[in-house]
Amino acid sequence: MTELVTGKEGPAAAGPTAEQQGAEPTVVRVSQWSDIRARFFANKLAVLGLFILVVLVIVAVFAPLLAPFDPLKQDLANTLQAPGGDHLLGTDSLGRDQLSRLIYGSRIAMIVGMASILVACTIGIVLGALAGYFGRLIDSVIMRVADVFFAFPLLIGAIVVILLMGRGVLPVVLSLGIFSWATFARLLRSQILSVREMDYVHAARALGASQFRTIRRHILPNSLTAVLVYATSNVGIAIVAEASLSYLGVGVPPEVAEWGNMIAAGRDFMGVKDFMWMYPSLAIVVTALGFVLLGNGLRDALDPKLR
């Protein structure tokens, strides 16, 4: 139990923590961090997920330093070279270095993946919370709208938005966000509905706690965890969707170094030059896996009952 005391919360903090908590709308209380961290790092798969993502972030941030060539520079004298030699992963049909394109591609993947989930999460949390707290007509309206969005296949919906907005990173982020918020809203709403009926929420109300305090101290910390975990796992899915859009030719412009584009470029050489689509595919799978593992690890670490 000593690790609980060593948290950032001082021993005499029974009162002040309430204010601390108010200033910091995070999901988890500061004093629980050490506990959660210990549980997270005890989980080997979660650590593997975290490791994959840390490596990816480093690669994305330091892409200009790590990439041996300019990912856009064409070298028509050296097209379709097999891996090895100067070009570790070979070159594409325009002679661009595959490794460099792969490295730069991680930037788009990470940015689009996380930003689109951020958009979905924000819309979903706001609408889900409104539906969950206020119920009745607001709930009905929001949930029926969510049903409509939910019914739309993600890619079809996204293509429609992109056709209206034009190709580019921003349209991809927005379209993916707009067509995946419904799940977040539903999840948060159902969490709130069940947490709201917990006796500790009743107890707080019985003590005379304001509605704001009840929501901030009791309902949100206990219902947001699930959303956070789901969001983490879903970044991987968003990355897959983003690559799919590019592969279909409606994502980012084709010259941009992006994994979906790279697979699309290799499509014509399937069975002949398999390295062209295999490495970017592998990158997508590993990245998605990293997020899923991280999400699962977070779920187990954040659940105080699993000990």
């Binding site: 609980l4 029974a14 009162g15 923590t17 309430a18 988890v28 209380r29 004093s31 629980q32 917990m198 006796d199 500790y200 009743h202 107890a203 707080a204 019985a206 003590l207 005379g208 706690a209 304001s210 305090r213 101290r217 009791h218 910390p221 206990n222 105080p304 009952k305």
Partner: peptide, 28 residues
């Protein structure tokens, strides 16, 4: 005041015992 039936749902799992028993003083 009230004492509830289920000791597993009547205490907020994310608060320490000190914060749970001290919450009435925060409110009053």
């Amino acid at each position: 005041q009230m004492v509830f039936q289920d000791p597993y749902t009547s205490l907020n799992p994310r608060m320490t015992v000190g914060d749970i028993i001290g919450e009435p003083f925060d409110i009053h």
